[in-house]
Write a protein that binds this DNA or RNA. Structure first.
Length: 451
RNA sequence: GUGGCUGUAGCUCAGUCGGUUAGAGCACCAGAUUGUGGAUCUGGGGGUCGUGGGUUCAAGUCCCAUCAGCCACCCCA
């Protein structure tokens, strides 16, 4: 019988991390969860699929949505299921909140860490399957503007904890520019187009932004000058806010400035230093469903990575599903993109292939029970431990430990068993130390804490 | 979705003007005297050259198709 071997190929855009990388991802996920919960957010999870019409209710994303169908259907049966994989977590959340409106308590604070799928053409940093780590606060009819200040505080706490280098949270309020544009005579239906152009300023430069807006004819030459002057001038947060108060605009503009000023003040009260929060009127976020505060975060030393998390305030989460205004504010971390960028940039390295720091080596087959017992003591003492079970020479066992990134090898043979001791070998420094079995948990805890 | 580039070992790639049994580095496996890893040395396994067709005495090499991958745009996390 001939065996057909199918060549295993990766599927582009569907990343599968190696163990060392997956361990880093788990560590990140743990910290993201812990930080979200520290601010009182509660986890929810929604189905991987939604009814197709639910996903398309916002419009525009059809081409990116993977639909579900059965490979084969019986006579007269429909192979289409009418279901499709969710492409973000916002639409499912809206549906979930509307569905469970009566059972949820508002303001509803939820976090949601799930995979999403998009039928895009993949390339570096762009995936077809990836994790989003969302938090949102959703109010029933109203939601304090101070909530908008909690989001940067959470981001600040989290990225400091993740230790992936210096970062800056950029913040703005959509009402400011859109109000200003309207005030300067830009037609309402042209405002989003102009904002979209301004959003590209980092990529294409101020000159091209100007000529693109000019070409669109949305603004008079005089108005364009004013807009460019406002967005292109660098100012400190304090200077910019006082400058904005001196600029004349319409009511929307003024509301935006008031909101931004209040948020920035509250962010400071939450302990985020000025150095990590930057008001930047050029960030607008492509999605026009944001209506107020908007955020982006980037790494200072790696601007090429782009925004590592972004979000904002919206007036109404679930108008498609429920006849009640549900304003909210939230943010999403694209964990898969973040990690792949960090690996590529060398900001984090994935080296350890085992979550356990200790490998118990085995020298004598007839003492297997003793080795297993040693491992049990270590685990009972809270130390993750693996036992090497294959009949190989010590040298090969240490090589295995080295490759998998264990930090300590525990070595014991005849003489150690007789004396009731074990040898602890530090695999980084090569140093060895003999300790009594009763002391080994204590000693290891000390040594691991030192690193 | 639009445009460009590339497919040779697990990975990164070399392979001349078409010419004999297709190469390197890394990785992997084994060994270099009894219970000590990362280095070095020696040896070893592994490829129907993405797939299908065509041209030719002869194709990894040229042509066509197809599939896959990468990059840019678009969109965004």
């Amino acid at each position: 019988m001939e065996r057909q071997i199918q060549k295993p190929t990766p599927i582009s855009g569907f990343p599968e991390w190696l163990p060392a990388e997956k361990l880093v991802e788990q560590r990140f996920l743990d910290r993201i969860r812990a930080t979200y919960e520290a601010y009182g957010f509660t986890p929810i999870e929604t189905a991987a699929v939604e009814r197709a019409e639910v996903l398309t209710s916002k419009g525009g994303m059809e081409k990116e949505i993977y639909a579900l169908s059965r490979l084969a259907a019986g006579e007269g049966e429909e192979s289409e299921t009418g279901l499709a994989l969710h492409f973000d977590l916002t639409v499912p959340t809206a549906r979930y909140v509307a569905l469970n409106y009566g059972q949820l308590t508002f303001p509803f604070r939820r976090y949601q860490i799930q995979k999403v799928w998009r039928g895009e053409r993949p390339q570096a940093g762009r995936f077809r399957e990836f994790y989003q780590c969302d938090i949102d606060v959703i109010g029933d009819g109203q939601l304090s503007i101070v909530t908008d200040a909690e989001i940067p505080a959470i981001i600040y706490d989290l990225f400091r904890e993740l230790a992936i280098g210096d970062f800056v949270i950029r913040i703005s309020n959509r009402k400011i520019l859109s109000g200003y544009l309207a005030h300067l005579g830009c037609a309402e239906d042209a405002v989003n187009g102009v904002l979209g152009t301004i959003d590209k300023i980092e990529k294409i430069g101020a000159d091209k932004v100007r000529s693109e807006i000019e070409a669109s004819g949305a603004l008079s030459a005089e108005a364009l000058d004013k807009v460019m002057a406002l967005i292109a001038t660098r100012r400190s947060n304090e200077e910019l806010i006082s400058h904005l108060y001196s600029v004349s605009g319409n009511e929307r503009f003024t509301t935006g400035v008031d909101e931004l000023a209040e948020v920035v003040e509250a962010v400071a009260a939450l302990g985020v230093p000025d150095s990590h929060l930057e008001i930047d009127l050029t960030i607008v976020r492509g999605l026009d469903y944001y209506t107020g505060t908007i955020y982006e975060t980037r790494l200072v030393d790696h601007p090429e990575i782009g925004s590592i998390c972004s979000g904002g305030r919206y007036d109404d989460l679930a108008s498609h599903f429920i006849d009640k205004p549900l304003p909210g504010v939230g943010i999403s971390i694209g964990l898969t993109r973040l990690l792949s960028s960090l690996f590529k940039a060398g900001v984090v390295s994935a080296s350890a292939q085992s979550p356990a720091p200790v490998l118990v080596t085995t020298l004598e087959r007839e003492q297997t029970g003793e080795y297993l017992k040693l491992a049990r003591y270590l685990r009972e003492g809270g130390i993750k431990t693996e036992v090497f079970l294959e009949p190989k020479k010590l040298g090969q066992q240490l090589k295995y430990a080295d490759k998998k990134g264990f930090r300590f090898a525990l070595i014991a043979g005849g003489s150690e068993f007789e004396a009731g001791t074990v040898k602890l070998k530090n695999l980084v420094t090569g140093q060895e130390q003999t300790v009594a079995v009763g002391q080994m948990v204590h000693v290891l805890h000390q040594k691991l804490a030192q690193e």
